[in-house]
């Protein structure tokens, strides 16, 4: 089987792909701002956005201005950033752990986040001064800290790190279940469940501002280390022989993924499947080299979550389905196609 030279001819292909992605993303975000219980025309959306940016002072109904600018646009942009962030984390973890099944939550981050969230909602830790997001963030980092400790600062090799992640997930899931069953009431348990499945319901501009910094910083750091990530193709020892400071790179990149994942989880809950599927889809399109895989994954992840968010709002009448349900329902058939088409030709 011949493989096209993606290094030279492929640069143009990547540029085209990213260009198309940007257009699709803008259209998706515009649709996300237009579609909903209260339908708004795309032209009004455009004016509401330019108004919001202070470029125009068009006369549109204040309610529509508010729905587009204050609610839907921030929500769509947070969805895009969360999708991009989760996809990048998936790429990094699949490379470092050399495991096609690795995804952002493999290091126990989501389990830790839910324990933190439950501690705030159910136990009332912080007496109202600590938000659910902060609790989730703290929990996520506790879990990551445990994984880092169990795997000697994430330096003991892929399988060891995965096992440490499994142990942390089990422990924190058990803690969550314990807290919910012993001291939670039914309504609280339902709230927690709903939050865990992921929702963009409560996000506003301040969330966007934080997430844009975290995701872009994460992407830049990962891009700077993209060549080193390629060197992990044949394992840690091979990477070391190619001059990569393996322990340092692993620790930095695990730290970045924990930071990005924890921030996303603390804002919108645990959105599964994006971090697992999108890297595979992107690899299928641009090949396995990370300098191309990272931006492509980020773009595809962003579009995927914006579209999934639209779907979550329109599928069931008068109800928003948890975003995690949509990503899995849309993602699995899509993933099946890729798996089928990427079958080794033997």
């Amino acid at each position: 089987m011949k493989i096209a030279d993606r290094n030279e001819a492929g640069a143009g292909w990547l540029a085209i792909l990213l260009g198309i992605s940007m257009i699709v993303l803008v259209v998706s975000v515009a649709l996300a701002a237009a579609i909903g219980d209260y339908s708004i025309g795309v032209d009004t959306v455009f004016l509401a956005v330019t108004n919001g940016l202070g470029l125009t002072h068009a006369d549109i109904p204040p309610i529509e201005q508010s729905v587009v600018w204050d609610l839907r646009l921030s929500r769509a942009l947070v969805a895009a950033l969360a999708g991009a962030g989760l996809a990048i984390c998936g790429v990094i973890l699949q490379a470092l752990l050399r495991n096609a099944l690795a995804e952002p939550f493999v290091l126990g981050v989501s389990a830790g986040a839910s324990t933190g969230a439950v501690a705030v909602i159910v136990l009332g830790i912080g007496a109202g001064s600590v938000s659910l997001s902060l609790g989730a963030f703290a929990g996520a980092f506790c879990a990551f800290g445990m994984v880092a400790l169990l795997s000697n600062g994430a330096t003991s090799g892929p399988n060891h790190t995965i096992l440490a992640g499994v142990a942390a997930s089990q422990l924190f899931n058990a803690l969550t279940a314990y807290i919910v069953t012993t001291s939670g009431n039914a309504q609280q348990a339902r709230d927690v469940m709903f939050w865990l499945l992921g929702s963009f319901g409560g996000v506003r501009w301040p969330d966007f501002q934080l997430l844009v910094i975290v995701v872009f910083l994460g992407l830049v750091i990962c891009l700077l280390m993209a060549r080193s990530l390629d060197a992990f193709t044949f394992g840690d020892e091979d990477a070391a022989a190619l001059g990569v400071p393996v322990a340092r790179i692993r620790l930095i990149l695990f730290g970045v993924t924990a930071m990005v994942t924890a921030t996303i989880v603390s804002m919108v809950g645990t959105i599964g499947f994006v971090g697992l599927v999108v890297p595979h889809a992107a690899r299928y399109l641009v090949g396995p080299l990370h300098l191309r895989l990272l931006p492509a994954s980020a773009a595809i992840g962003a579009i995927f979550l914006v579209l999934a968010d639209i779907a979550s709002r329109v599928v069931a009448d008068q109800q928003t389905i948890p975003i995690g349900v949509v990503t899995a329902m849309v993602g699995v058939p899509f993933f099946a196609i890729i798996l089928y088409r990427a079958k080794p030709q033997q």
């Binding site: 011949k2 050399r98 700077l224 060549r227 193709t233 044949f234 394992g235 091979d238 022989a241 396995p288």
Partner: peptide, 28 residues
Amino acid sequence: FVQQDTTTDTNLSVRDVVRLGRTPHRSA
């Protein structure tokens, strides 16, 4: 350093694999 039969699941081309050898000579 050449290890004994290491392999990968990633489907790189021969050219891409040999290019990895340039890693220590290239900056980010």
